[in-house]
């Protein structure tokens, strides 16, 4: 038996909004530790890694490890039926081929449930090697979304360059070029509004705008985003989900042939 009750169905909805552009379907791996998901996009350029800790749930019970393959468009339809203040309880029997979502309004005045068919997905897990990153940049998630959106108008790629002076986002296209430089801020009492750069070595890497834009769909999950860069290694874009876990995106760089 699997049962997980989350105080805010809106949080799960935000997680779903953050991954459904990249993934058509995905397997949710449920264990004592919580719910994990790892999946590549269709083009195998990026990898999504979601971790929701069991202790972030109001109630969590997982008698046996369970993998639930779900179509994310269908799952979105289910969550569109939940109210913004509803709690959600996810339930599945061992070896079941369906999962049930129950939405409860705060005062119990409305309770709805939706049963959804599960899918058998043959998804391979990738091993992610430990990396010593050259630069780790923390910045407000809204600022990152803004920069990616602005620069995407001009080119297909964004170069992220990090030195001890700051981080620079650049693009070029048919109509010209664009650059956004962010300096490290000293506003340390408001960490989620600060730009914090931890640089071991300068690094400059090129990434697809389209994917970066998809990742910024996670902006409503967290005020802050962390970018980890290292030469010849995928970029990591990480959003912490307060009290629940994290959502990480890995993006392969564009490299000179």
């Amino acid at each position: 038996m699997f049962e997980a009750r989350l105080a805010s169905s809106a949080t799960f909805k935000k997680v779903l909004d953050a991954i459904k552009d990249l993934l058509n379907e995905a397997s949710f791996d449920c264990s004592d530790a919580g719910i994990q998901l790892q999946a590549m996009d269709n083009s195998h350029v990026s990898l999504v890694s979601l971790n929701l800790k069991s202790d972030g749930f109001e109630k969590y019970r997982c008698d046996r490890n369970l993998t639930m393959g779900m179509n994310l468009a269908s799952l979105s339809k289910v969550f569109r039926c939940s109210g913004s203040d509803d709690t959600v309880t996810i339930k599945a029997q061992d070896d079941a081929d369906t999962v049930t979502f129950m939405f409860e309004a705060k005062k119990q005045e409305k309770i709805s449930d939706y049963e959804m068919k599960l899918m058998n997905l043959d998804q391979e897990h990738l091993g992610i090697p430990e990396t010593e990153f050259s630069c780790i940049i923390k910045l407000p998630s809204g600022e990152f979304a803004r920069i990616v959106r602005d620069l995407s108008q001009f080119g297909e790629s964004i170069v992220i360059s990090c030195t001890k002076e700051g981080v620079k986002f650049s693009t070029q296209g048919d109509i010209g070029t664009g650059n956004v430089k962010l300096a490290q801020t000293n506003n340390f009492d408001k960490e989620d509004q600060s730009v914090i750069i931890d640089m071991q070595e300068p690094v400059s890497l090129t990434f697809s705008c389209e994917y970066l834009n998809s990742f910024t769909k996670a902006t409503p999950l967290s005020n802050q985003v962390t970018l980890s860069l290292c030469d010849n290694v995928p970029l990591v874009v990480e959003y912490q989900i307060p009290d629940l876990g994290h959502l990480k995106y890995y993006l392969a760089p564009k490299i000179e042939e």
Partner: peptide
């Protein structure tokens, strides 16, 4: 000319 690498050229099936 830049070419988009695949994530599987960095991460291998575990």
């Amino acid at each position: 000319k830049l070419s988009q690498k695949s994530i599987t050229s960095f991460f291998k099936p575990s």
